Amino acid sequence: MTGTRPRDELLGELGERVIDSFRYLQREVTVPHPGLIHVTRSEADIMRIIMEEPGTTVTEIARAFGQHKSNTSARIAALVEKGLAEKGTAEGDGREVRVYATKQAVANLAGYRRVWAEHLAPLSSADDTRLQVAVEVLGEIAEALAAESRRGAPQQADSGV
Rank of each mutant, 00 (worst) to 15 (best):
E118I: 04
D45S: 06
Q26K: 06
H33N: 04
R7K: 14
E118L: 08
E52S: 15
R98D: 00
D127V: 12
Q104C: 05
R151H: 07
Q67K: 12
A157T: 11
R27H: 00
A117T: 11
L123Y: 09
I37V: 15
L131V: 15
V58N: 03
V115Y: 03
T72L: 03
V31L: 07
T102H: 02
G66M: 02
V18N: 04
T59E: 11
E143V: 10
P122N: 06
V135C: 05
R63G: 06
A64Y: 04
A85G: 06
A121V: 12
D20M: 11
E136A: 15
G88W: 07
H119A: 10
G3D: 14
S21K: 07
P6K: 14
L36H: 01
Q156G: 11
K69C: 02
T40N: 02
G3I: 10
D93N: 14
E28M: 02
V133Q: 13
Y24F: 15
G94F: 09
D158R: 15
V135A: 12
G66P: 05
R95Q: 10
L10V: 15
D128R: 13
D8K: 14
A142S: 14
G15E: 09
D20K: 12
G3E: 15
T89A: 13
T4S: 15
D158I: 09
A142Q: 12
I19K: 08
R27I: 00
A144L: 10
S73A: 13
P54I: 04
K82V: 01
P54T: 05
R113A: 10
R63A: 13
R114Q: 11
S149N: 07
E43P: 05
E53L: 14
P122G: 07
T40P: 01
I49L: 10
L123M: 14
E13T: 13
E86K: 14
S73D: 08
S125W: 04
Y112M: 01
E16V: 12
S159G: 11
V97N: 01
A105M: 07
A77Q: 11
V80P: 00
V99F: 02
D45V: 00
D128S: 13
T57I: 04
G83Q: 02
S149P: 00
E16Y: 13
A126E: 12
L120Y: 08
H33I: 00
T40I: 02
E16C: 10
A44E: 04
W116Y: 05
R5I: 08
A110Y: 05
L25K: 02
L145S: 09
R7L: 15
E9I: 11
T4D: 13
I50V: 06
L138G: 08
L120M: 14
E52D: 15
G160K: 08
A126I: 08
G12H: 08
A126L: 14
S125C: 05
M1N: 11
R98C: 05
A157C: 04
